[in-house]
Design a binder for these strands. Structure first.
Length: 683
DNA sequence: GATTGCGCCGATCTCTGT
DNA sequence: ACAGAGATCGGCGCAATC
């Protein structure tokens, strides 16, 4: 088992600090890169592998800075350029069989030395795109490194002080019999000032310390260069392997492998180093750091394709390379998919996106394992919600059997004993709801209700109800009950008016029920709570990298984000405050735990939740935390939904009562009339 | 039918963050 | 200490080839 993870190999090359001095870097010689599983195992099929090394050569690497180089691409969009085309069911294959992507920023400095054969004539998998690269030199060396370098092996042949030239040979791809320079005698001189400079820096200073740190305990691959071997049957062992200096052997991790052996002691177990991919790591360009490869890509997907196709290769192409040469990682595996999986260590590529939270993952297994977290959370929340639902049902039963619902407290002092709450809280709430929803003047201006038409429980309704609730709770001087009663009675003049209002709130009540049930089901359908309006969808918290979602196709932008809303933004913008349902999921879980432990009734818990919020503004960190912790199932408080259900039901109950009262009055009038009439008739 | 290459996937180990 | 994430490795199935 090899856990040699280069700590900085996660980073893009831009993160390196150049500590190299032009005259101090160790000599870089050649490496025969062709070591395959076959050659190691002695398989007959491995015989051809030596050709790779012999065919390729790198004359030199230029360390001169050509920072003025400018790159201009012709459009080379390929299927994999669009993340939407990633086969997320088979990410590996998607990366390895659909490659070509954007043109890497390869610059041909010495293009007259050889013209790249830009057409892949052997690889049926991919690379049929022409990548045109224009440099300021006025010549457009056309090079698709993925195509041209298919199966390429490189060997540095000479080292010149100051300026080095890079030259690649590109044997053809999959054709086993043509895997030779003689059969494919083209070579492409390349120059990438950035990559060259970085490669230059790889072997100096602190970076070298880290290289040793991560590799001292790594067994050298067979036929490959051991850090401290200087003889190989294939390789000039000084090649690309940094020569340790006396200055960088201080760290125990720099102890060479041979040191422990010589002492007869087992070397200390090397420690894995993990580094999370940060936002800055997602910024291109992305340099290939495989040996002295100079390819640069603007998206990590293409870099991964490049690594899998050009450097790892395939056995069927006689160019399989199971040792990782990314920054001399030298991690060796026994299977191709293992090395390709390992390569993700070096690339800030997380194409697997959780649909329930903003998290991204490198491997499908990682996502799958992560999903268990949501399932467990769901089960835990389901259990809690079921308890709440049972309480709610119990309350509903008691309401229907005992007292009119509108007398049940919706708001009030949660510390007050049940049954002792003031009714003016409910009446005030009912009045506020009907007023805020403009039902009092619905016959005058129905346009004001347009936004909430149909009684659908959507994000607008969600916010509206919260707003109404808050306004009612924060009324400095709640109107007297008699005044509210009078206002309410004046709101409706006839039964049809009440019926229309009833229909509206009846639909709303059912809509809330449906949404709530979906919440309990945990089927992810809770997204329906927030319809797909332009207002309700905020920017993705991980802006800057388009992550496809497994199993979902992308839109025209090639970017799919799960139906999440930026609740913090929306609500803060709408109501200029932050409510507690914007808290992170973790905090919310804690609150649930506390609620479960306590003996509070549902209504008490829910009302207190909303009564105790403050008006402080959310800062950036808080907002970032909120965004990072939001998920469909956890981002909003189910208590809000239940509270809204209570509010609406209270309105319905009130409407039912006043309608019955109104009907009773009419009936009384009718009866009295009918009574009067027969009496008259009796005359 | 046997072999081989390849990729998917689960198990497991290791490390990080709280 | 624990949960979650990152990384590695072996088993298995499928397709192509012999």
């Amino acid at each position: 088992m090899n856990y040699n993870i280069h700590p900085i190999s996660y980073l893009n090359a831009d993160s390196y600090n150049s500590t190299a001095q032009s005259g101090s870097e160790p000599h870089v010689d050649s490496v025969a890169a062709s070591v395959s599983e076959d050659s190691k195992s002695g398989s007959p099929k491995g015989n051809n592998n030596n050709n790779n090394a012999n065919n390729a050569h790198i004359t030199s690497i230029s360390t001169s800075s050509t920072t003025s180089s400018s790159y201009e691409f012709e459009d080379t969009h390929s299927p994999t350029n669009s993340l939407s085309n990633l086969n997320t069911n088979s990410p590996q294959s998607s990366f390895t069989s659909q490659s070509s992507g954007n043109s890497p920023l390869l610059m041909d400095k010495d293009y007259e030395n050889g013209q790249a054969n830009l057409h892949n004539n052997g690889d049926h998998h991919h690379h049929h795109h022409h990548h045109h690269l224009q440099t300021q030199l006025g010549v457009s060396p056309i090079l698709n490194p993925i195509t041209a370098s298919q199966g390429f092996q490189r060997q540095q042949q000479e080292h010149q002080q100051g300026v080095q030239n890079v030259q690649y040979s590109f044997p053809h791809g999959n054709n086993k019999s043509s895997n030779s320079a003689a059969a494919n005698p083209f070579s492409v001189p390349l120059f990438n000032p950035i990559a060259a400079s970085q490669s230059h820096n790889l072997f100096s200073g602190n970076h070298f310390d880290e290289l040793l740190y991560n590799n001292y305990n790594k067994p050298a691959p067979q036929g490959q260069v051991n850090l401290h071997n200087h003889v190989s049957k294939q390789v000039d062992l000084s090649s690309e392997i940094p020569i340790p200096t006396s200055n960088n052997n201080n760290n125990i991790n720099n102890i060479p492998e041979s040191a422990g052996e010589n002492l007869g002691t087992s070397p200390p177990k090397k420690k894995k180093i993990y580094r999370k991919v940060k936002d800055e790591d997602m910024k291109g360009p992305f340099n290939c750091r495989w040996k002295s490869c100079t390819a640069i890509f603007d998206v990590p997907e293409d870099l991964y394709d490049h690594l899998c196709n050009d450097h790892v290769g395939r056995k069927s192409s006689n160019n399989l390379q199971l040792t990782c040469y990314w920054d001399n990682c030298l991690t060796s595996t026994v299977k191709r998919d293992h090395i390709t999986s390992h390569l993700r260590v070096h690339i800030p590529l997380k194409p697997f996106h959780c649909e329930l939270c903003p998290k991204l993952f490198k491997r499908p297994q990682d996502l799958k394992k992560h999903m268990k977290i949501h399932n467990e959370d769901h089960l835990r929340n389901l259990k809690k919600n079921q308890k709440k639902l049972a309480k709610l049902e119990q309350q509903k039963m008691s309401r229907h059997q005992q007292t009119p619902l509108y007398t049940q407290p919706i708001i009030g002092n949660s510390m007050a004993a049940p049954g002792k709450r003031k009714l003016d809280g409910n009446m005030s709430m009912i009045s506020s709801i009907l007023t805020d929803f403009n039902f009092g003047e619905m016959h005058q201006d129905t346009n004001k209700r347009a936004r909430f038409d149909g009684g659908s429980y959507n994000i607008d309704m969600f916010n509206k109800l919260n707003s109404t609730y808050d306004q009612t709770c924060h009324q400095q001087q709640p109107p007297q009950q008699q005044q509210q009663q009078a206002a309410l009675h004046n709101m409706f003049n006839n039964v049809p008016q009440i019926n229309e209002t009833e229909r509206y709130f009846y639909n709303l009540s059912n809509s809330i029920d449906n949404q709530y049930q979906q919440l309990l089901d945990g089927s992810g359908q809770s997204a329906q709570l927030y319809p797909t309006t332009s207002q309700t969808y905020g920017s993705h918290p991980l802006n800057g990298f388009a992550a496809p979602v497994a199993g979902l196709s992308s839109g025209s932008s090639g970017i799919y984000y799960p139906p999440q809303i930026n609740r913090a933004n929306n609500y803060a913008q709408s109501f200029n405050r932050v409510s507690n349902y914007q808290k992170s999921a973790d905090k919310r879980d804690e609150e649930y735990e506390e609620e479960d432990e306590g003996e509070e009734s549902y209504s008490e818990a829910s009302t207190e939740d909303f009564s105790s919020e403050d008006d402080e503004e959310v800062d950036d960190d808080q907002l970032a935390g909120l965004l990072g912790g939001l998920s469909l199932e956890q981002s909003y408080d189910v208590n809000d939904v239940l509270k809204h259900k209570q509010m609406v039901d209270a309105v319905l109950q009130y409407l039912s009562n006043i309608k019955q009262k109104m009907l009773a009055e009419e009936e009384e009038t009718t009866l009295s009339s009918s009574k009067l009439y027969p009496e008259i008739a009796a005359f």
